[in-house]
Write a protein that binds this DNA or RNA. Structure first.
Length: 502
RNA sequence: GGCCCCAUCGUCUAACGGUUAGGACGCGAGGUUUUCAACCUCGAAAUCGGAGUUCGAUUCUCCGUGGGGUCACCA
């Protein structure tokens, strides 16, 4: 395993920094968590450094099978690439903490030997008791002097198989000052700290130990994590000091709040990154949006991947916690869908429709048909999943004729007979249109002329036709749609609509 | 409650002692229009409160208020 940096070419915040994303495989990563990964990746790449993924699987009870894969998939979907990680290895392997137990144990031995840590044999019941007593006496809670066992005795009891944890011997007095890149120095009275656990009774390290050992071993220069870790910062500072290691820099990002205030949760519609993918969001949308909440750059709103790669700097992130703005996310997605290259849009539309269209529609879908439909809806959808509701009628040889009230609006209110007669007229005229003239402009000309003949406003006539042909009050552009649906089907639907109203 | 962090339009943010406090979402009005969108124009909308420091505070300091985090053998 490589040792620390050499003096020349020293890594710094803005020179080849090494940042890591250290998720626990306990479930799908949510937006706040994945934002951390995105930011770390961007900062590392902006300054020519490395981005590392390390799995923090030190809590066996919460581990979820398959979670590691879904975490990496989330990253890949967003376009985040890592230089070292559990799947690709690297110079500092392994990148899975459960494979690094020996390293933690060595560090524990070191601490025990220096009397900087102690074995604790207290039962959970006893610890609870201590806490309750502290609470009753209005003392700051925290396990300090739960047991005081001579090191030799402790070692003997451990050797005899008794269960124990290893705690850090936190100084009783003094002040620990730790630095946050964004907030500056933060000081903590040691008296408010506790003898926190380093090694659990199952032999796994806690986050505190693993973080310090691994981030040092992996030459991490900038640690980014959520604000909830600030209160643990002095513990980590003390630990780095105890090992004689240089402390890395830290940037604690604020949490993302729910629209109503408070933590963002599933209840607020917060989804995992993969769920956003399923719901029809584009990766570029999420990447942009994630950076837009908690970071900004002048007047710019739209940031491409390469914009971010050249502009993002961890020291510019916002301190105040941001609220998750679903509306803006949706708007962004619409914007990115509209900006999609035509061919790319066709491809993803095809994929989406094959997922969303009724099962009785034969797959694969006709590529040419998709190509003709795509331009009609590209600027009309916000999510890719919006498409199906707009275009399903193109695949239904038989649509159920909408109820009369869908036809009889505005001008046609209470005038079913008139509407029926008008539609019949439309059907006849369209039927007379030669097959060779069945195209958008001919159809448009015909219908506009007809409207004039009947002394109707174009919109009044088209409203009936739209509902008859598409089965919807709102649809893609009508003339184009009619051309695509085809003469036979169009005439048939119009006639059916006409008779349904008479 | 102790400790810690934070505070600009409803929301996301820009300003790094001097601006008519800017942009974006959303909202409202108008335009365009075959529906719906998209698009264009315009509009309303903010520096939490109070003391300081300074010629001058959104910006620096202190106090208050409000919000958040944390007090596990979870991360």
């Amino acid at each position: 395993m490589p040792v620390g940096n050499s003096d020349q070419n020293k890594r710094t915040l803005t020179n080849r920094p090494r940042l890591r994303y250290a998720p626990s495989p306990t479930g799908d990563p949510h937006v706040g968590n994945i934002r951390q990964a995105v930011w770390s990746w961007l900062h590392a790449k902006r300054y020519g450094g490395d981005f590392i993924v390390r799995l923090e699987d030190t809590d066996q009870s919460r581990a979820q099978p398959g979670a590691d894969k879904r975490i990496l998939d989330s990253l890949r979907w967003l376009g985040v690439e890592w230089d070292e990680g559990p799947d690709i290895g690297g110079e500092y392997a392994p990148y899975i903490q459960s494979h690094r137990l020996d390293l933690y144990h060595d560090h524990i031995k070191m601490l025990l030997k220096n009397d900087a840590a102690r074995r604790c044999f207290c039962s959970p019941e006893r610890l609870t008791e201590i806490r309750e007593e502290q609470q009753a006496n209005k003392l700051p809670p925290g396990i300090r002097d739960c047991c005081d066992i001579a090191p030799e005795d402790a070692e003997a009891r451990a050797a005899a198989g008794e269960s124990y944890v290893v705690r850090f011997k936190t100084p009783r007095e003094g002040t620990t000052v730790a630095t946050d890149l964004l907030r500056g120095d933060i000081s903590f009275e040691n008296s408010t700290l506790d003898d926190f656990v380093l090694l659990k009774s199952d032999g796994f390290p806690t986050y505190h130990l693993a973080h310090v050992v691994d981030d040092h071993a992996m030459d991490i220069t900038l640690v980014t994590r959520g604000e909830e870790w600030i209160s643990s910062l002095p513990r980590h500072a003390l630990l780095f000091d105890a090992f004689g290691y240089d402390r890395p820099e830290y940037a604690h990002a604020s949490v993302i709040k729910a629209p109503g205030g408070g933590k963002l949760s599933k209840r607020d519609g917060a989804k995992s990154i993969l769920e956003y993918a399923e719901d029809g969001y584009l990766p570029e949308t999420l990447l942009n949006f994630l950076c837009l909440t908690g970071w900004g750059h002048g007047d710019q709103t739209l940031f491409s991947r390469s914009d971010l790669l050249s502009l993002f700097d961890m020291s510019d992130i916002t301190l105040a916690s941001a609220t998750f703005d679903h509306d803006k996310l949706a708007w962004l997605n619409g914007t990115y869908i509209r900006a999609l290259d035509e061919n790319v849009f066709v491809t993803s539309l095809k994929r989406q429709l094959e997922l969303d269209l009724p099962v009785d529609v034969p797959r694969p879908l006709d590529e040419a048909l998709i190509e003709s439909i795509a331009p009609l809806i590209q600027e009309r959808i916000t999510l890719m999943t919006d498409a199906v509701a707009l275009v399903d009628f193109f695949w239904q040889s038989k649509i159920s004729t909408p109820p009369p009230e869908d036809f009889l609006v505005k001008k046609w209110r209470d005038r079913a007979q008139e509407a029926s007669a008008t539609l019949e007229r439309v059907g006849t005229r369209l039927n007379d249109l030669p097959d060779s003239s069945w195209n958008t402009s001919e159809i448009e000309a015909l219908l506009r002329n007809l409207a004039e003949e009947l002394s109707l406003k174009a919109g009044e006539l088209l409203s009936l036709v739209r509902t008859a042909v598409t089965g919807k009050r709102i649809s893609p552009p009508l003339f184009e749609s009619m051309e695509i649906v085809g003469k036979g089907l169009v005439v048939e639907r119009i006639n059916e609509a006409s008779s349904s109203l008479s």
